[in-house]
Structure formats: C-alpha cells, structure tokens
Simulated scan of single mutants.
Amino acid sequence: MQQGLIHIYTGAGKGKTTAAVGLGIRAYGQGLKVLMVQFLKGWDTGERKVIATLEPCFQLFRYKENDKFVWNMTDEEKSGLEREMRIGLNYIVEAIMSEEWDMIIMDEIMAAVNYGYLPLEEVVEIVKNKPLKLELVLTGRDAPVKLIELADYVSEITARKHPMAKGIIAREGIEY
C-alpha cells in the first residue's frame, strides 16, 4: 500500500480545478478510484461531462445545480449555501470513512471556508485524520496557512494575464 499525500492547488490564476482533474485522470488511468466533490460550482462544465463517462471509478458529486458566482447571488440564495456546503462536507466524511476511494478531490473547498460556509477547523481535522492510503486534493484561492502546513504539495497558480481584464467572458470548453 502506498502512502497517500495531501495536495493543494491555490492562487488567483486559472487552472486549479483543471490541475486537480488532470491528477484525478492520471490516478484513474492507473486503476485508482477517484471522487471529486465540488463546492460552489453548479454550472455545466466540460470536466463534469467527461467524468460522467468514467463512472463508477471516477465520480463527481455536487449538491445542487447553480449557475451563479457567490458575488452575483441574492441574500436568499446565499442563505441556502451553508446547508449545501454542509451536505458536501458530510458526503466527503462518509466517503473517507467508507475507505472505497483512493483519491478524493475537494474542489473549491478553500472558497467554502473563506466565505464562511464551512469552519476551517473541521476541514483541518478531516485532512489531519485522513486514512494513510488516501490521496487528498484541495483546491481554491487563498488556501489558509493551517491547511498549507499540513500539505505535502502546494502549487500556487498565479495570474499574470487573464482575458477577463479585456472583458472577455468565460468560454465554453476553456474556462468551464
């Protein structure tokens, strides 16, 4: 049994989820079982369509369909997010306890913590107490120091240029 390590993809640049999905595809290609749980993402993405073709050994879980960023939501829409984030985190805890998965990707977990929808200490405890063989991948901007200290890999993706600065909106197949 090989030891599982902890990865963080963070930073303001584009590609954190893409890197995590790429790592998941690599693991899947070597016969590992991969679960990806997405927080604060609900729009139809290219990775979702591909991962669906890889089931049951690579699965993606989202609580609810949502096509808005947090900063574009009404107060009423935001109020339901904490409950949704809790469902996602509970799903991860159950998945970890099942010991069915070789890799679990917690996509945008940093945003769920940084927006205050999930307590940092709970996520820290999950990371600290993961099974020895489990590879754990966390993504999102502004990774908290407590999580960075626990990680074996930390990749910070920096944006030097981004088309949004020129008013180019997210494009299907590239940004989502």
Rank of each mutant, 00 (worst) to 15 (best):
38 Q>R: 10
31 G>P: 07
50 V>H: 11
90 N>M: 13
153 Y>T: 12
136 L>G: 09
53 T>I: 00
5 L>D: 14
30 Q>E: 14
149 E>D: 12
80 G>E: 10
163 P>N: 08
46 G>N: 01
17 T>I: 14
84 E>V: 08
17 T>F: 11
140 G>I: 04
58 F>S: 00
76 E>N: 15
43 W>C: 12
28 Y>D: 00
114 N>D: 07
65 E>F: 13
43 W>Y: 11
37 V>R: 02
51 I>S: 00
26 R>W: 02
144 P>M: 05
79 S>K: 13
146 K>C: 02
34 V>T: 01
121 E>H: 08
75 D>V: 10
155 S>N: 06
113 V>T: 03
37 V>C: 09
124 V>R: 09
73 M>E: 07
41 K>L: 11
171 R>V: 08
112 A>P: 03
163 P>E: 13
90 N>Q: 15
113 V>P: 01
81 L>R: 02
111 A>I: 13
48 R>N: 06
114 N>I: 11
79 S>E: 13
16 K>S: 03
129 N>G: 06
158 T>M: 07
116 G>L: 01
151 A>P: 07
41 K>Y: 08
49 K>D: 13
161 K>R: 15
32 L>S: 05
45 T>D: 12
86 R>D: 12
42 G>R: 13
24 G>W: 01
152 D>V: 13
135 E>Q: 09
162 H>E: 12
35 L>D: 01
89 L>A: 06
138 L>V: 02
74 T>D: 07
151 A>G: 09
163 P>S: 08
137 V>S: 11
128 K>W: 00
99 E>K: 09
172 E>H: 10
173 G>L: 03
98 S>Q: 06
147 L>K: 02
102 D>R: 06
79 S>R: 09
20 A>L: 05
20 A>Y: 06
160 R>K: 13
106 M>G: 04
132 L>V: 10
68 K>V: 14
175 E>C: 07
176 Y>K: 12
102 D>K: 06
126 I>V: 04
45 T>A: 07
9 Y>T: 10
68 K>M: 12
162 H>Y: 07
25 I>V: 11
37 V>L: 05
149 E>K: 09
61 F>A: 04
60 L>A: 03
72 N>L: 10
166 K>C: 14
81 L>N: 03
30 Q>L: 10
30 Q>R: 14
13 G>R: 08
158 T>S: 12
65 E>A: 15
19 A>C: 13
116 G>P: 02
43 W>P: 04
67 D>V: 14
113 V>R: 00
57 C>M: 15
99 E>P: 02
53 T>Q: 11
15 G>M: 07
145 V>E: 14
33 K>C: 00
26 R>V: 04
105 I>M: 08
8 I>N: 15
8 I>V: 08
142 D>P: 01
4 G>M: 11
111 A>S: 12
151 A>M: 15
112 A>F: 03
136 L>M: 11
84 E>L: 10
20 A>V: 03
161 K>V: 14
61 F>N: 01
2 Q>S: 06
127 V>A: 11
42 G>E: 09
169 I>K: 09
82 E>L: 06
88 G>N: 10
140 G>C: 08
125 E>M: 13
99 E>H: 13
150 L>P: 02
108 E>W: 05
52 A>F: 01
64 K>M: 08
53 T>D: 01
18 T>G: 05
66 N>F: 14
21 V>A: 03
138 L>T: 02
94 E>P: 05
42 G>H: 05
96 I>E: 14
172 E>M: 10
52 A>N: 13
171 R>F: 03
